[in-house]
Amino acid sequence: MTTIVIQVKVKPGSRDSSLQLLSDGAFAATLKAPPVDGKANAELIALVAKHFKVPKSAVSLRSGAAARLKRVAVMLS
């Protein structure tokens, strides 16, 4: 198993949810969920899991739980 760590710039409270790769190698995520009670973080984990085609349990926040700039670990098989 290989673990990669990606950097994600998050914009919660948006009209739709999406995840895009930026030219600098980081990702930009727009999330419908508000940044309240971890709802935006949960939606981000689901979005990253869907993008990399892994279960949600293979995705975790490394840092930035309360920040817009987050580091997310993804375990690839």
Rank of each mutant, 00 (worst) to 15 (best):
2 T>W: 04
2 T>P: 01
4 I>R: 08
4 I>C: 05
6 I>E: 00
7 Q>F: 05
9 K>R: 13
11 K>W: 09
11 K>I: 12
11 K>L: 14
13 G>C: 11
16 D>Y: 15
16 D>M: 11
16 D>R: 15
16 D>K: 15
17 S>I: 06
17 S>W: 09
18 S>Q: 14
19 L>T: 10
19 L>D: 10
19 L>M: 12
20 Q>Y: 12
22 L>A: 15
22 L>S: 13
25 G>F: 10
27 F>R: 04
27 F>Y: 15
27 F>A: 08
28 A>R: 14
29 A>K: 05
29 A>D: 05
30 T>D: 12
30 T>W: 02
32 K>M: 12
33 A>V: 10
34 P>F: 06
34 P>K: 12
34 P>D: 07
36 V>L: 12
37 D>V: 05
37 D>Q: 14
38 G>P: 01
38 G>C: 03
40 A>F: 01
41 N>L: 07
43 E>H: 02
43 E>P: 00
43 E>N: 04
44 L>G: 03
45 I>M: 01
47 L>D: 02
47 L>F: 06
48 V>H: 01
49 A>H: 00
51 H>E: 06
52 F>P: 00
52 F>D: 02
52 F>I: 06
53 K>P: 03
58 A>Y: 07
59 V>D: 03
59 V>Q: 02
59 V>R: 00
60 S>F: 07
61 L>A: 06
62 R>G: 03
62 R>C: 04
64 G>L: 07
66 A>H: 12
66 A>T: 11
67 A>P: 03
68 R>K: 12
71 R>H: 13
72 V>R: 01
72 V>G: 02
74 V>G: 02
74 V>W: 11
75 M>R: 15
76 L>R: 13
76 L>P: 05
77 S>A: 13
77 S>L: 08
